[in-house]
């Protein structure tokens, strides 16, 4: 069993690093950790970075999870290797670029690039965003899946994830007390489906809705409230079509024994109980009209 401690960072390729950096700072409101030499890293909380853009293929996405210690990292690599995933130990240069001591890279059954990291850096100085978006931290990712039932097995059997709820076949998976850190959505592509940052309050969600809309950022879902996690949310489109989410008030599952996963319908009401209709392909059964 691979014990994922938390979701550490995402790495995204982009053809226009300056534009992506502008979005991450001016719109998303994150703090620049480092910018230059073909990469930009951004903070969203005490960690050295939780988002990294690099010059490269916009379809090249990676999500990283932290593991507890070096022996767990080795055991995880051995287990993944045994299961036929091709596992690669990151070089010292690559680890330095990620600000982690050591990491291994592999692909999940859908082909999503995943990294397991040991000792990712956190900083002593507090996080301060470029705008007052109220961001409290990078919190979860949606992952594209070519077979959500198979992938749910991978994350829950090979790794330590537990199903918190399902919307249709899409599984919302937790690795700690937070309702979900990974969400699996059926898709005909591989990669990250959306990137979530938590904000302080529902007011922050609504403020960003007006702030971003006035600046021409494309809203794709919300403002709304998820019946599953209880979080108030807003989804909007960033560079290269990546969907970003702000949310606030995500449910915490403190008692593993008492909690029962629930099944929500794969329809707008399963995603929002305020009545917002998703404009995100993976959240719909029918094609999205542009």
């Amino acid at each position: 069993m691979i014990n994922l401690q938390n979701v550490s960072y995402v790495r995204l390729g982009t053809c226009d690093l300056d534009e992506a950096t502008r979005f991450a700072t001016d719109y998303l409101g994150l703090e620049i950790s480092e910018h230059g030499r073909g990469i930009s890293r951004f903070r969203s909380d005490v960690r050295e970075h939780t988002l990294c853009y690099f010059e490269g293929d916009p379809a090249d996405h990676t999500v990283a999870f932290e593991v507890g210690d070096a022996s767990e990292l080795e055991a995880a690599a051995a287990e993944l290797d045994r299961l036929g995933h091709s596992v690669r130990l990151g070089t010292a240069d690559e680890a330095a670029a990620r600000h982690v001591r050591r990491f291994v890279a592999f692909r999940d059954p859908s082909g999503n690039a995943i990294e397991l990291v040991w000792r990712p850096e956190r900083l002593g100085n507090r996080y301060r965003g470029c705008r007052d978006a109220g961001v409290t931290g990078f919190s979860h990712v949606g992952l594209c899946s070519s077979d959500v039932v198979r992938d749910e097995k991978f994350w829950t059997k090979v790794c330590n994830a537990r199903v918190s709820d399902r919307i249709g076949d899409s599984a919302l998976l937790r690795i700690d007390e937070v309702h979900h850190s990974i969400a699996l959505f059926a898709s005909d592509r591989a990669g990250i489906q959306h990137i979530n940052h938590q904000v302080e309050s529902g007011d922050d969600v609504m403020r960003s809705h007006h702030f971003l809309r006035e600046r021409g950022v494309r809203m794709v879902f919300g403002p709304g409230r998820h019946p599953s996690s209880s979080a108030r949310f807003l989804y909007f489109e960033g560079p290269d079509g990546m969907v970003f989410e702000y949310s606030s008030g995500v449910k915490s599952i403190a008692d593993e024994l008492l909690y029962r996963q629930r099944q929500f319908p794969s329809e707008p009401r399963g995603f929002c109980y305020w009545g917002a209709k998703p404009g995100i392909g993976e959240f719909r059964d029918d094609p999205v009209k542009e």
Partner: peptide, 11 residues
């Protein structure tokens, strides 16, 4: 509450 307000908004 805010849920009812937003539900009314979409309605």
């Amino acid at each position: 509450d805010v849920d009812l307000l937003m539900q009314n908004s979409y309605f």
